[in-house]
Design a protein around this nucleic acid. Structure first.
Lengths: 331, 331
DNA sequence: TTGTAGGCGTTATCAT
DNA sequence: ATGATAACGCCTACAA
């Protein structure tokens, strides 16, 4: 491996001067700078980031914890985070917490987190308040979920407002029996419960009495959406609209409707959340609440980077704008 | 930050003894080991991986270069790679090369690759032979694409055989005018050209004369599949089957058929490749060639790890098994 | 079984 | 403007 010393010897200068050239620092005369750059070229020298970060006490790596990159939403988010981090000179290591909410805290705590400079946490259900003391002052940014009161940076989206808009849209389209196919539990404060609240708000605003039979607590996967439809149907529940907690679930819902020979949007209208890339290509295309994912990723990276640089900065709260993308599934 | 020296002082031993305990090395008496472990607990000491790897000349990070994790196939693959790497004690940093084939080599070459111990490269079109000299002896494993003759480890899949099986399946179902919606170029040796060859082989075996009008060189995205169908239709090309280069493209094809009011599978049967998770949930569900992704990821990680440990090991070639998942889209 | 010395490649500090 | 020195935290090699 070619080191700074090698380059220094080759250029007939000291390591320090090489370092100064490499880092574009002032105070290097033009002829020397030129000579050093030549030596670098010639020797094929590469900066050893590891040594640099050892010295700096940093790793240059940001952790990005998600349930799984194989899920379209997190893959998409991951792509943006990686891009944004690159612009700040950071690498991203993706940690998978697994679908289950239970293990999230454990995975994160026992993870190699301390070799990251910071962690962007896109958790499904984890409540940061329960973990505050464990993490200490380790730089953490919550992405995509609301944190109530804990002093942690947070980039969220309008979960209530978004779902409310989607639900109101169904109402406008004439739906009166709107189901909510959502995650397993409405307890606590997280994506699932907040989106459910938006659904409830819209019903109330429309003067539609909520019917517990229309709320299907299933899960966050496509299969869960599919089964939910089957279950509703088997139970004889009458419904003409579905608000799904995510687009992935909405895809399952569409599939479930097809299984049963129900037409969308003619018999049942469906709305999702996330605006995953495939939402445009399903048949029918899915009406979806579209938060600005790129915006969120960039914001989260900015926050983590600035917190790494200044851990004492007061925590910030950002909420991504959203648009309702109206497509075929709501007719 | 708590260092080994701190722990050593606390336990009343030397750094070295702490190091030995941390690394589970033999030659530490039980009482001392216990004392050290206690001191570690008490002080909240964490091993600084950076320092360790600086010394070892390694970073403990494997790069995984893909066009983009936001694409379902690569997200899925990434999830498996991350899991497999964790079992070997490695982290995975995902590098995105961008959809375009052009920038692949550039991205990889100029990337921070030298801070990775190795790189798993899931390139779409890059020919490693053209880059061999640039990479030198940097540990690289090609994943998902065939490398001809270059001395590089490779984990591939049965691109020809898989597509051939899919095409033959369409023939069995009675299709006689089978289109191939594939990537932009058939030149060179890569996923696109190899899958196309499988398509051609199947036609020949079935005694069906190939028709250039049925081959649509479009791209690898869903939108490309959609447009391809529109184009074929607009050109008045008659077809009753489509072999799509990937499931993502197949989704676009389904969407395109729906746009035109063509029914699948009644009017046109469609087969894809990759068996992405969503293939089961589309309407109709997509018949797809399913290589064993987990197998591939695990194999790739094993290869890169062993190559990192022994760079002189002769390169190996592995081909993943596949199954044809027959679903609704081929009736 | 335990400890000491030295160095991995870089950079901050202080000198020249 | 340039250089010498000492660290960052750990591990290899050798010594006790």
């Amino acid at each position: 491996m070619v080191t700074m010393s090698d380059v220094a010897r080759l250029a007939g200068v000291s390591k320090m001067t090489v370092s100064n050239v490499v880092n574009n620092r002032a105070g290097v005369s033009e002829p020397v700078r030129r000579r050093v750059l030549e030596a670098i070229q010639e020797s094929g020298y590469r900066l050893n980031v590891n040594a640099r970060t050892l010295k700096a006490g940093r790793t240059g790596v940001i952790g990005f914890a998600v349930p799984g990159v194989d899920q379209a939403y997190f893959g998409m988010l991951g792509a943006h985070v990686i891009e944004a981090a690159k612009a700040h000179g950071f690498h991203v290591a993706i940690e998978q917490t697994g679908a289950g909410a239970e293990g999230e805290a454990a995975t994160i705590a026992q993870s190699h987190k301390l070799q990251f400079d910071g962690l962007i946490l896109s958790a499904v259900t984890l409540d940061p308040r329960e973990q505050g003391q464990t993490w200490g002052d380790f730089p953490i940014v919550m992405l995509g979920e609301r944190d109530f009161g804990a002093s942690i940076d947070h980039v969220g989206m309008a979960n209530e407002a978004g779902t409310r808009a989607a639900t109101e849209h169904l109402v406008e389209r004439g739906c009166t029996r709107i189901a909510n196919v959502t995650g397993r539990s409405l307890e606590g404060v997280h994506v699932v419960s907040r989106r459910h609240r938006g659904y409830m708000e819209a019903l109330e605003a429309a003067g539609i009495g909520p019917d517990p039979a229309l709320v299907s607590l299933s899960g966050m996967g496509a299969e869960d959406g599919r089964k939910a439809v089957h279950t509703l149907h088997a139970a004889g529940v009458d419904f003409d609209g579905v608000v799904a907690v995510t687009d992935t679930v909405a895809m399952g819902v569409l599939r479930g409707l097809a299984d049963l020979g129900l037409r969308c949007p003619e018999d049942v209208r469906v709305a999702g959340f996330d605006d995953i890339p495939y939402a445009v290509y399903t048949v029918p295309a899915i009406t979806s609440v579209a938060p600005d994912h790129r915006w969120m990723a960039e914001r989260a990276v900015s926050l983590i980077v600035s917190r790494i640089e200044d851990p004492s900065r007061p925590p910030e709260e950002h909420t991504a704008p959203f648009r309702l993308m109206v497509r075929e599934s709501t007719g």
